[in-house]
Amino acid sequence: MSQAADSGLIHTFFNADIVRQTSPMVMEAVGQTIAIGVLVIVAGILLGTALATWRFHTQSRVLRALIVGYVDVLRAMPPLVILILVYFALPYVNISIGSVLATFLCLSVILSAFIEECVWSGIMTLPKGQMEAARSTGMSWWQSMRHVILPQALRLSLPQITNRCIAAIKNTALGSVIGFAEILGSAQAASSDYANPTPLTLCAILYIGLIYPLVLASRYLEHRAGIR
């Protein structure tokens, strides 16, 4: 009985024939997910670091409040709500963007808000004397920022930054809701075509394969930060 049930389960959830037939489609989606994930991380880190630097540089209280407001708004709204708002509301004013572009834009902007927060907290943790010492050696403000402050701030917040990047990659799955054929979207399509959950199992395995190494890396970084 139990053996029959086991082979029944495998036949249902990991059917070799269906794996063969659907894996080309799902594997193509892996490329899409990785490409969008990398682009989102690069854009989010650049924008977030730029915003934190700007917040540190500016003397204007208004500008600082605007940056904090931007960060807070994006942290307070669910990513799926932002994605649906951008994708379904903009066409009413004749701006329509594709699901891939919408996913990229929304996730980058959301990630930039979280990165700003991490980098800012890194900058704030550094003693004030760091900037003063760097300036007194004759470096300009920007040089001090680039060679002294930012490298240390980024290193201090590396574990949090890694976690936010992992969250951003996981959020690419939300693209499936607006029709982006990334891993989850194509697996759902394949699963309903074949009336079998095997593509979903494959999808779960692929995500674990992609993200588990990153989770281990973040654990290592946290451990190292804890020792220092």
Partner: peptide, 23 residues
């Protein structure tokens, strides 16, 4: 912990709700 940190929440939600009817 690491296994479930590696899963996008939506994938887990879809898997649990769409795969369980098959058994």
């Amino acid at each position: 912990v690491d296994f479930f940190r590696s899963f996008p929440q939506l994938v887990l939600v879809i898997f649990v709700s769409f795969a369980t009817p098959f058994i």
